[in-house]
Design a protein around this nucleic acid. Structure first.
Lengths: 141, 141
DNA sequence: ATACTTGCAAAAGATTTGCCGCATG
DNA sequence: CATGCGGCAAATCTTTTGCAAGTAT
């Protein structure tokens, strides 16, 4: 059983064959394609179809929304007009996007996390969530 | 003449009545509606129509894209599936979005800016741009 | 049994584009 | 005058939804 399937059980998300298949594909995305993998809906539907070609894209959309709302996966908009997904991790991370290749690098920085909480507090808010994306070009030399 | 019109001249962006009107509306957005104003395309079209009701929404889209590509205005996606705009400023700022009211608070933090540059460098990149959005709920007390 | 899911196709919402007459520099 | 611009409607792209039939607990 894959990680996402386990999380569904924990959260009381009902499981069906379709959801199990989609869960499996997302769970295996990073394992198979590396930490730079953040597939979009179409890509996920393609991968899911290899396992069960009867799963419709509407189900993929519905399942992704469900998983996202349960905190099981994360959705990102990298300024392309479509969403990309990845499994949630214990360790929060942010992204650096290579503006030339589109490659996505993940990173973790504790100082930045703390600074954000402090800024929100100063403005009179509790930080619930945040999004930090760096856009950069590869440094020659 | 408004600020955006001036910037068009600097950048060699051709001016027309429609573009002048749209420039005026964006220039005046913060003056009229406060620093929390980040209108979307529909809202801008409504405001523009009050001045010249013959300007089509296609022109608003085309003009916003043009201004954005020239660095005259900034586009944001605050996770709503549509874009919001504001005039570019000399002083870079980030946004905190109230998850309950949708209110947008602008803030500037030099430490965070520096930290981002440092992180990008460590990963072998030159930071070209970035996006930081904090999502928070109002802190009672 | 009963409420939840799915597939399909249609709908919706945001944004872009082809065409052609018109304005700008 | 030539090139680019704007209006309109149709097209595109991503995502959502109504419906009828099937499925999980």
């Amino acid at each position: 059983m894959n990680t996402i399937e386990e999380k569904c059980k924990e959260k009381g998300v009902r499981l069906t064959d379709q959801r199990r298949t989609i869960a499996k594909v997302i769970s295996e995305s990073k394992m198979t394609f590396g930490s730079k993998d953040h597939p979009d809906v179409d890509e996920l539907h393609k991968r899911v179809s290899l396992i069960d070609k009867k799963i419709s894209i509407a189900t993929v959309y519905r399942t992704l929304k469900l998983f996202e709302e349960s905190g099981i996966i994360e959705r990102h908009d990298f300024r392309e007009g479509k969403s990309r997904y990845e499994p949630s991790t214990d360790q929060h991370h942010d992204h650096l996007i290579d503006i030339h290749s589109g490659e996505i690098i993940e990173f973790v920085d504790k100082d930045i996390e703390e600074l954000q909480i402090k800024i929100a507090k100063k403005l009179g808010y509790n930080l619930v969530d945040h999004k930090l994306e760096l856009y950069g070009s590869k440094n020659k030399k």
